[in-house]
Amino acid sequence: MSRGRLATRLRHQLPLLAWLVLVWILLWGTWSWANLISGLTVALAVTALLPLPPVTGGARLRPLPLVRFVGHFLADLVVSSAQVAWETVRPDRNRRGAIVAVQLRTDSDLLLTVISETLTLVPGSLVIELDREQQTIALHLLSVRDRADVDRQKAAVLAIEDRVVRAFGSAADVAALDRQPDQPERTSS
């Protein structure tokens, strides 16, 4: 039994190990077997000394939605940077901010992390609070014109959630997207 637990733990740690080795090799800048072996040693030491809770359970990568997500992300990053840059130089100060709460449909630590990182970088929003149990996320919107604009930006948040989950989520997460968003399941978990 303990052997099976060890195997699952190793499987969960494997992406982290690979990432640490990659960072190590990139820091040295050249590929060599010595770098690979020393990087592996350092990564094993780091994960053994500073263990993290497993967050990657059940995640998988789907190539086509991943490309779609990354493409949207880069385009949105450029657009939103241009928007914020324009906000800094525009003369009139009529626009106002807003704090909104959005009900998400995802129930996974990893996915919520990716979603909130993306939301901070991408549209005119900034994550303030994340209620893990209610799956509610509170955002600050930089500039809104009226209530319709607020609703439009909330719809954009849900669209980003959709893209992230379809790129990284497990089958159950994708199925949760299609449930009615205003009837969250209370009985599960």
């Binding site: 106002r96 901010g97 807003a98 704090i99 909104v100 709460a101 303030i128 609070e129 209620d131 209610q134 509610t136 509170a138 809104v144 009226d146 209530r147 607020v150």
Partner: peptide, 15 residues
């Protein structure tokens, strides 16, 4: 400066 504030100033009781 806020048009909408759906947290209502009670961040501890979100939602």
């Amino acid at each position: 400066l806020l048009l909408v504030d759906e947290l209502g100033g009670e961040p501890a009781e979100l939602g």
